[in-house]
Design a protein around this nucleic acid. Sequence first.
DNA 1: GCCCAGGTGACGG
DNA 2: CCGTCACATGGG
Length: 298
Amino acid sequence: MVEVQNEDLDIEKIAASGQCFRLCRQADGSWLLAAHGRALRIYARPGGAAFDCSEAEFDALWKTYFDLETDYARFRAAVPARDRYLSAAAAYSRGVRILRQDPWEMLVTFLISQRKSIPAIRGCVEALARAGGERCRPADGAASAPAELPYAFPSPQRLAQLTQGELAACALGYRCGYVAAAARAACEGKLDAAVLGGLGDARLQAALEALPGVGPKVANCVLLFGYHRLRGFPRDVWILRVEKEEYGGHIPLRRYRGFEGVIQQYLFFYGRSADGAPGPRQAGPQKTSRAAGARNPG
DNA sequence: GCCCAGGTGACGG
DNA sequence: CCGTCACATGGG
């Protein structure tokens, strides 16, 4: 068991933040993550978390996966107090981090995400994993095994092998063709993560948007969550709502050069907590007047 | 049953 | 360049 004390590490908030769909609460209150072909059990702690694996595996995989070498306090500190809304969002979202997830999995996940609710996306991803993925193996050095090992997200080859019917059974709807086309492109070597990872943000975004079903929003999600390009700033319905209602049509990002995506996650997590959505919301946003000094064109 | 969901592509102005 | 519309499916 590896104990981590870090006020900017909150597993429950990360699980509810809409970036990772393979982090599920277990009956006993612990969390089970499927990533890197492994099943990792995590226990939420006050001001941190405990990871049920060996020190060696934690250092080799999970420290990086959870982006624990990045200082999020610095990001929060960049928010000026006069921006009331973002200050509240950053405080509320303390503990949310940008995970370093697999680019292929993020591409398919956010291809699916369009016009779907977060629970529905989770269901689709889970169905795809069951249909085409292999069983995860337990994390190295795990003290206890989960009741059932989850399935890993399928490789492009495995996804490409699924029949049209098998894909449709995952409730992808009209997105089936998008996923199939992406799998084909990946199998033809056109989506090599090592190659794409060498591109600058703009070129990477353009390469992703060349795929059917990938527009600016999905591409930015893949940049942010799959390639850890913290400049990525996905504009979804929630961000557009906040931008319109709290910032008069324009969120000032000038102060946040290089980590716009972290700010995006704070706004998304806070904004979405206001109504209906599952997850922690004991101190949700109050519909205050627009943040002072919010307007800042450019 | 109705409405919406971490949008995108096609089409017409 | 802009605005509008269809798109499959599941959950509130």
